[in-house]
């Protein structure tokens, strides 16, 4: 009996895996094709399809509203851009307050606990309403009655509560031996935190925080309820104007163009971290 001669430079296992991979790709493509074909062929048979197509997938309206909506989306990005760094910093303050052990500073700790409980317990949209309408309602002079300021503050306050918890989980994930090593050298507790624990903890929570910030980018659209003409509100304006829902689809697609790559990147970072740790 003759054994098959192995291909040069490849192990039998590699050859087997390459074959299995090819087979997998073919099967996956075929089954995807079947599902897509079914959707494309069957959905138009639904009795209301023509109406839906006209009001949600109108190509002409799509092209006409796209530039203006993209421009409005820049406001979403801008609001995100000034909120994100403030969240990163404020959340760190909250996270560190929760770890304070000094009895004189107990009120800080209590504040941090209440803060995270409250802001994680209330729907974001409610916070946006309460702060975004409530504070300007006090009759503050311009520019302090701007919904941009108070809407952004609502997002910052809410998201900081979540990000603070992520920071804390990162801090707790650093093994106690790192702190012991720093203290054994005679370093102060705060130096141990600042130079040894935090730098490692912050690195470790980058992927988790990316997911929070992707959610933040989407929730910026909530500010549309209190005034700023960002993409969701602009789409609403077009909807009323043209009596057509296509602008909402455009807005959704614009969001997806940002959030899908960002989500994929966060997943990639998580996978990389898991590989490094195993």
């Amino acid at each position: 009996m003759t054994l098959p001669t192995p291909a040069p430079g490849k192990t039998r296992r590699e050859i087997h895996e390459a074959r299995a991979r090819q087979r997998g790709i073919v099967i996956a493509s075929l089954s995807t094709l079947c599902v897509v074909a079914a959707v494309v062929l069957l959905v138009p048979l639904a009795p209301g399809w023509e109406a839906v197509q006209k009001s949600f997938f109108n190509g002409e309206i799509f092209l006409r509203t796209f530039p203006k909506l993209l421009q409005a989306f820049l406001l979403d990005v801008a609001i995100f851009a000034w909120c994100a760094p403030l969240i990163a910093v404020w959340a760190l303050v909250i996270a560190l307050c929760r770890d304070v052990r000094n009895p004189a500073l107990y009120p800080l700790r209590l504040f941090a606990v209440l803060y995270t409980d409250i802001f994680r317990g209330v729907p974001v949209v409610l916070v946006v309403y309460l702060i975004g309408f409530g504070v300007p309602g006090l009759g503050l002079p311009r520019p302090w009655n701007s919904p941009y300021i108070w809407g952004s503050l609502a997002l910052i306050l809410t998201y900081s509560a979540y990000v603070a918890e992520i920071y804390r989980s990162g801090i707790e994930s650093i093994h106690a031996s790192q702190r012991a090593a720093a203290l054994s050298l005679g370093m102060s507790k705060s130096d141990a935190m600042r130079f040894v624990i935090l730098p490692q903890a912050l690195r470790r929570v980058v992927p988790a925080n990316m997911n929070m910030f992707i959610a933040l980018q989407k929730d910026v659209a909530l500010l549309s309820f209190i005034g700023p003409v960002e993409v969701l509100r602009q789409a609403g304006v077009f909807k009323s104007l043209l009596a057509n829902f296509t602008p909402y689809v455009v807005a959704a697609i614009i969001f997806l163009c940002v959030t899908i790559p960002a989500t994929r990147y966060a997943d990639y970072l998580i996978a990389k971290q898991n590989r490094a740790r195993s």
Partner: peptide, 28 residues
């Protein structure tokens, strides 16, 4: 101040992984 006078070396090294060898030594 007492710990500064007493060095302790651990079984598991406990070096700071985010710093070079030199930075590990210089930090304290």
């Amino acid at each position: 101040p007492v710990r500064q006078r007493i060095g302790l070396v651990f079984q598991s090294f406990n070096l700071f992984p985010h710093m070079t060898a030199e930075e590990n030594v210089m930090l304290a």
